[in-house]
Design a protein around this nucleic acid. Structure first.
Length: 256
DNA sequence: ATGGCCGGGGAGCCCGGA
């Protein structure tokens, strides 16, 4: 089973690139973040023509997540349980496919909105950890994948790619990520590639791509039995070199 | 040392259709 996650930075701008990638790579499930549109604006026809059905949690202007699947998928949640905001931004969707629960998340960046904006990021992490505990207690097979907006360690960013005070590298952000690992979840890409950069994002600015000033912020965390099935996991760097790319590349994993 | 890029939304304008 091939599952991928991709922050596409507007699905309408990126639909040709996404469709091309789907045709070549043929994932069973593709998790999209930052689709930047409402559900009725989602280019579902483009993907249906390739055999993929869409579940969309959209929002005008910013945010928005979606799941594309060529296997039967059951929609479970359209927002992350446990958030204090009863109408949170469109940043989480949870589905089940072949007995596997898949949480698709787009975590707050945390650099805007001052300290309140950063606390909002930590609250999302808290709710995600609670969700993980709930699913672990239920003995469910699950994974949480998407844009975590955290470089977990110093290995996960090129020197000089971010300031030391950036919300993506702040100790509280990293501690929140580690809490998920300590619950027993496995960082799929890092587990298989301990010594490679595996960057997933290069800023549009400052020639970051040409200078390889990348960061690793798109992750897939696997529950224990799912981790036992892990056969491959890596970002697809080539997508960043395409014309008019997203600033993120897809991260593809394969489960046996 | 600094800035360098994208996206959507909407204002404002132009255009085409009624």
């Amino acid at each position: 089973m091939k599952i991928a996650t991709w922050n596409v930075n507007s699905v309408r701008q990126r639909q040709v690139l996404v469709a091309d990638w789907l045709e070549r790579v043929q994932p069973d499930v593709l998790l999209l973040q930052e689709i930047k549109c409402e559900a009725h604006q989602f280019p579902a026809d483009t993907f249906e023509a390739l055999g993929y059905t869409a579940h969309v949690v959209g929002q005008k202007s910013y945010n928005g997540v979606a799941v594309l699947s060529r296997r039967p998928v059951e929609l479970r949640e359209t927002k992350l349980p446990g958030l204090s905001d009863p109408e949170p931004p469109a940043r989480y969707i949870e589905v089940e496919a072949d007995g596997l629960i898949i949480g698709n998340l787009y975590l707050t960046n945390g650099n805007s909105g001052g300290e309140a904006g950063f606390q909002n990021k930590l609250e999302f992490f808290d709710a995600l950890a609670c969700r993980a505990e709930t699913l672990l207690r239920a003995d469910a097979d699950f994974l949480f994948a998407g844009d975590y907006n955290v470089c977990p360690t110093e290995r996960d960013l090129a020197p000089g790619a971010l300031s030391a005070t950036d919300a993506l590298v702040r100790p509280e952000s990293r501690a929140a990520f580690r809490r998920l690992l300590w619950l027993g979840l496995t960082d799929a890409v890092r587990a298989l590639h301990p010594d490679e950069n595996c960057y997933t994002f290069w800023d549009y600015q400052a020639g970051a791509w040409n200078r390889d000033l990348g960061i690793r912020i798109d992750h897939a965390l696997l529950s224990p039995r799912v981790a036992e099935r892990l056969a491959a996991a890596a970002p697809d760097r080539d997508e960043r070199a395409k014309p008019q790319p997203s600033d993120h590349v897809p991260v593809l994993m394969e489960l046996g």
